[in-house]
């Protein structure tokens, strides 16, 4: 049955209405969870607020387990779900640069849209700057095109990489997430006792 669009169960212009609705729900959940505040987000790096870790990891394991469940029930053909290809060198550098951008800027692109939407100028500036970043990347692209495509491992999954099944990987993520939720809860309690700068807003 699923995925509906690749299987052509939904076709034509409905795509864009669905994209709008999904995007809308995404923005709502991000804002409602507190991601329109860069100070909430950056808390993950200083131990005073782990909301990012909680929302992000919960979302990830729910989707992972859900995907396996849907596949097991025969509701979705998991082979048609897009596995982001792995370009080793380029993605390591990309993750590095984004990590730096994360701790300096306190947003990522999606969260900056929601911050901009509720009137935060820092969110607008962040979102605007991503345009410039992408423009610079594209302008200089010919210089590092080789690097960008180097070490292409294809659409490889985590399980294929380590010789394990998706089920084992999902289970491992669930266990890691639960341990992380507990440990960060302890850290956060301790750090918040000594915090004066951050008002949890």
């Amino acid at each position: 049955m699923g995925p509906l669009i690749p299987n052509e169960i939904i076709t034509g212009q409905w795509d864009f209405v669905i994209a709008l609705l999904i995007g809308g729900a995404f923005g709502f959940v991000l804002e409602a969870s507190g991601f329109s505040s860069s100070r909430n987000i950056a808390g993950v790096f200083y131990g005073y607020n782990f909301v990012v870790l909680r929302v992000f990891f919960t979302g990830m394991i729910v989707a992972m387990v859900g995907l396996l469940y849907f596949s097991y029930m025969g509701w979705i053909n998991i082979d048609l779900v897009f596995v982001l290809p792995t370009y080793l060198n380029s993605m390591l550098l990309g993750g590095f640069i984004m990590g730096l951008g994360f701790v300096i800027g306190g947003f990522c692109p999606g969260t900056s849209y929601t911050a901009a939407a509720i009137g935060k100028i820092d969110g607008m500036v962040f979102a605007g700057s991503t345009l410039i970043g992408i423009f610079l990347f594209a302008e200089f692209f010919p210089l590092f095109e080789g690097f960008y495509y180097a070490n292409n491992l294809g659409n490889i999954t985590i399980g294929e990489m380590f010789g394990l099944s998706n089920e084992v990987i999902a289970f491992a993520f669930v266990v890691i997430a639960i341990v992380a939720f507990y440990v960060t809860w302890l850290i956060e309690k301790r750090v918040r006792k000594n915090m004066t700068e951050y008002k949890f807003e």
């Binding site: 962040f126 700057s129 970043g133 992408i134």
Partner: peptide, 11 residues
């Protein structure tokens, strides 16, 4: 931060 995210997200 936005500039870095713009570049990093492409890599």
């Amino acid at each position: 931060g936005g500039l870095l995210f713009g570049i990093g997200s492409q890599f």
